[in-house]
Simulated scan of single mutants.
Amino acid sequence: MLRLTVTVPSELTEQVTQVLADSTAVSSLTLMRGVAIRPRGDVVQADVAREGANALVDQLRELGVHQGGTLQIEPVSTWVSRAGFEADEETPGSSADAVVWAEVAQRSYDDSELNWTFLSFMSLATLIAGIAIVLDSQILVIGAMVLGPEFGAVAALGVALVRRRALLLGVAARALVVGFAVAILVTCGASLVGRALGWVTLQDVTGERPATDFIYTPDRWSFIVAVLAAAAGVLSLTSSRLGGLSGVFISVTTIPAAGNVALGLAFGAWHEVRGSGLQLVVNLAGMAVAGWLTLLLQQAVWSRVPAPRSHSRLNRHVHAEPPPRRR
């Protein structure tokens, strides 16, 4: 169940309430007149079955709600309502499978914003990956994978292609390129300091590392794992079941590969740079392609789900016979 809150100028209120009242996906509808200050107007709230949200959002956008007012979409984690149950049952599709595209697009923009926080997490994760390589520690490699924020931007590439959002594509690509470049430069600088202090040696970078040698030796399995992990990650994001993301983060070696590239640059170990650079490209390409194909499939499948019926639930309940009274 989702809660839609629409703040609109008064001249749009009747059209907005009519759209919501005529949808079987709406289980409750509230109108508060004159409570909005900016824009001056009214606030309309509706509880909507998740699988019916896209059609309603499209209709409200056609009315120009997003230009003259605001449309907010919030998940309702717990609800107890007979009308809500009926709306969920009568709306075609499954709430678990429904992709609310407005929600996905907003999250994609948020996760792809190139800001201080994004660059900090990228740099810190890559620094930890560099230390993991020096110590040949799988535990630290996993920690670096989980800390890295790059998957959101990778998933945003697929959203941008499927929804044809050129701006989002540019924002996500810029975040990935600049984010990895900054993280590698920071880690390379730290590696040079460690080299000068004698804390890190060439043998640490090029010697035998049985626990972390997969970072610089990409193969077909690297691509396959990246594809499978990205598909699972996109499904987690679009279905709001975020528990699967942890498995995604520790399945692909983007951040560890960037850390090894930085170490290789600091010590002139070009074999490490080439191998890890290829690993990074293979993983990013695999995730981007898998994310795009998964979203494309979801869009194609969801487009075949019948649109929600449009007739007033209010009339149906008014004319419905009351339940028999218990004695």
Rank of each mutant, 00 (worst) to 15 (best):
A288P: 06
F223N: 02
D88E: 14
S303H: 10
T7I: 12
I184Q: 07
A181W: 09
G291F: 11
A173V: 07
L314Y: 04
V200C: 06
R164F: 14
V248A: 07
A25K: 11
E86C: 07
R107P: 00
T30E: 09
G41I: 01
M145F: 03
V301H: 05
L31D: 02
S10R: 13
E321D: 15
N260G: 14
V186N: 07
R61E: 06
T187M: 13
D219W: 01
L202A: 15
V186G: 12
L293H: 05
A229Y: 06
Q15A: 14
G93L: 13
P39N: 07
A46Y: 02
L119Y: 08
G68N: 05
R313M: 09
Y216A: 05
V234R: 08
L197F: 03
A105N: 10
G64S: 10
M122A: 11
P256L: 00
T78L: 13
G41P: 01
T206N: 04
D22W: 03
S10V: 04
Q298S: 10
S112N: 15
R61V: 01
Q106S: 15
A166Y: 14
P323I: 13
E208W: 01
T187N: 12
S28K: 02
N115C: 07
A307T: 13
A257Y: 14
T17N: 10
L135D: 12
S10C: 11
V227K: 02
V289F: 13
V305N: 09
V193L: 05
V318D: 02
H317W: 04
L127S: 04
E208M: 03
P218S: 07
R309C: 02
R174G: 15
S312F: 06
D111M: 14
Q15V: 07
R33Q: 11
V205K: 03
F214R: 02
G247V: 08
I131A: 06
T91C: 10
G233M: 03
I133D: 06
L63I: 06
L56Y: 01
T212R: 01
L228I: 10
P256T: 00
R61Y: 04
A181M: 06
N315D: 11
T201P: 08
G34L: 11
G243C: 12
P256C: 02
T253D: 05
T206A: 10
L297E: 13
G268N: 07
L235D: 04
V146C: 04
V154F: 05
S120L: 15
A196G: 04
L56P: 02
L169M: 13
T5N: 12
V141M: 13
A183C: 01
S112L: 15
A175I: 03
P324C: 06
V248F: 08
A320W: 05
A25M: 14
S310H: 12
P39F: 08
G93Q: 10
L237E: 04
I142T: 07
